[in-house]
Computed example of a mutant assay.
Amino acid sequence: MATKIITSEDLSTFKTELLQDIKNLLTDHAKIGFKKHYRTSEVLKLLQISSTTLKTLKVNGTLPYSKIGGTCFYKAEDIQHMLEDNRVD
């Protein structure tokens, strides 16, 4: 097995990339975090779930929603309640 040497430049590059990734994540959550209502795409990103999982949550009544035209909206409060109600200790 070959040995690979990591230089301080490698570590510096890694640090810069890692910090940028963290900034991007925080920015994404900050954009979503202060809204009262979310669209489907925002809920998928916020909860990191598939569209199939979200559809299941809607169909079985776990996550209430409102539909205006063809767009579904979810209350931030309902999302929070769903997470709290389904918490596993």
Rank of each mutant, 00 (worst) to 15 (best):
T3E: 14
T3V: 15
T3L: 15
K4L: 15
K4T: 15
K4E: 09
I5W: 12
T7K: 14
S8D: 15
E9Q: 15
E9L: 15
L11W: 08
L11K: 14
L11T: 13
L11R: 12
S12L: 14
S12M: 15
T13A: 12
F14E: 13
F14Q: 15
F14C: 13
K15A: 10
K15E: 07
T16Q: 14
E17K: 15
E17C: 06
L18C: 10
L18Q: 14
Q20L: 09
Q20D: 09
Q20R: 15
D21R: 14
D21P: 02
D21F: 04
D21G: 09
D21A: 14
I22F: 02
N24P: 01
N24G: 01
L26R: 04
L26I: 12
L26C: 01
H29Q: 10
H29W: 02
A30Y: 06
A30P: 02
A30C: 05
K31L: 02
K31F: 07
G33Q: 06
F34L: 03
F34N: 07
K35Y: 01
K36Q: 10
H37P: 04
H37A: 12
H37I: 13
H37D: 04
Y38S: 03
R39M: 06
T40N: 01
S41N: 08
S41D: 08
S41F: 01
E42K: 08
V43K: 13
V43P: 11
L44K: 04
L44T: 08
K45S: 09
K45I: 05
K45G: 08
L46F: 11
L46G: 00
L46D: 00
L47E: 03
Q48R: 14
Q48T: 09
I49F: 03
S50N: 05
S50P: 06
S50F: 06
S50G: 12
S51T: 11
S51H: 11
T52D: 08
T53F: 09
L54E: 00
K55Q: 12
T56W: 04
T56H: 04
K58M: 12
K58Y: 00
V59C: 00
V59R: 09
N60P: 11
N60H: 10
T62P: 08
L63K: 08
L63F: 03
P64E: 03
S66L: 12
G69F: 05
G70V: 07
G70H: 13
T71E: 08
T71H: 10
C72W: 01
F73L: 11
F73P: 09
Y74W: 06
Y74R: 05
Y74G: 07
K75Y: 00
K75S: 05
K75T: 00
E77G: 03
E77A: 10
E77W: 02
D78V: 01
D78Y: 03
D78H: 09
D78C: 05
D78S: 10
I79E: 01
I79S: 06
Q80R: 13
H81N: 10
H81S: 05
H81I: 00
M82N: 01
L83Y: 00
L83V: 04
L83K: 09
L83F: 04
E84L: 07
E84F: 00
E84T: 05
E84R: 05
N86S: 10
N86G: 01
D89G: 12
D89A: 13
D89N: 13
